[in-house]
Simulated scan of single mutants.
Amino acid sequence: MGCGFHSIVSEMKFHLLLICVAISLGPLPGLEAGVTEEQMWSAGNLMRDVCLPKYPKVSKEIADNIRNGNIPNSKDSNCYINCILEMMQSIKKGKFQLEPTLKQVDIMLPDSYKDEYRKGIHLCRDSTVGLKNAPNCDPAHALLSCLKNNIKVFVFP
């Protein structure tokens, strides 16, 4: 039951999360159709429930502050943010993923958020360039801070 077992369990939890997100969103008429705010927050809460236990130094209060746009710059909070951004397919190994991020905007956000988020994403596309992921998850902090500063209606799980 070494790392291999832990990895398999983590992978299973991730796939279960994706299934739960898909179920919570219900049938989508197409990628162009957004979700309701309630569905967006439900999916976000599922991601949060997976990432928070991985970073015990990030309390629910800290996570709530991040959700409200108060983004601390510490290893634990940055790696919590990284966990969520990886689940959202926005970051992979510290590198921003433009196309998967834009795809997630289409799937996971209500229509009223989409244009603003697309603009912010394009403005922040280079915010992780030159930053190292280890040991402090700095690219995640830089990306989320940039998005917060460039998107009027900021949302984060």
Rank of each mutant, 00 (worst) to 15 (best):
A134R: 15
A140V: 07
K114P: 06
A140T: 07
P139S: 05
T128I: 08
D115W: 04
D115N: 09
H141K: 11
S145A: 13
I121P: 00
A140P: 05
L123N: 14
G120M: 05
K119T: 11
A134Q: 14
Y117G: 03
N133P: 02
S112Y: 10
K132D: 12
L123W: 00
S127C: 03
E116D: 15
H122V: 13
H141D: 10
H122I: 14
Y113K: 12
S127E: 02
K114T: 01
T128M: 07
L143P: 00
L123M: 13
S145L: 14
V129L: 14
R118F: 13
P139A: 03
P135C: 06
G120W: 06
G120P: 00
D115T: 09
P139T: 05
L143G: 03
C137S: 12
A142S: 15
T128H: 07
A134T: 11
N136Y: 07
A134D: 13
S127V: 02
Y117I: 01
G130L: 06
G130C: 02
L144N: 02
A140K: 06
D111N: 13
A142D: 05
L131V: 10
L144K: 06
N136Q: 14
Y117R: 03
A140N: 07
K114G: 04
R125W: 01
Y117M: 08
H141R: 09
Y117V: 01
D126N: 14
L131P: 06
K114N: 04
E116W: 00
N133F: 11
G130D: 03
R125Y: 00
C124M: 09
N133S: 10
A142E: 08
H141A: 10
P139W: 01
N136G: 08
G120C: 04
K114H: 06
H122N: 15
L131S: 10
S145I: 08
C124W: 00
S127T: 01
N133Y: 12
P110V: 08
K132E: 13
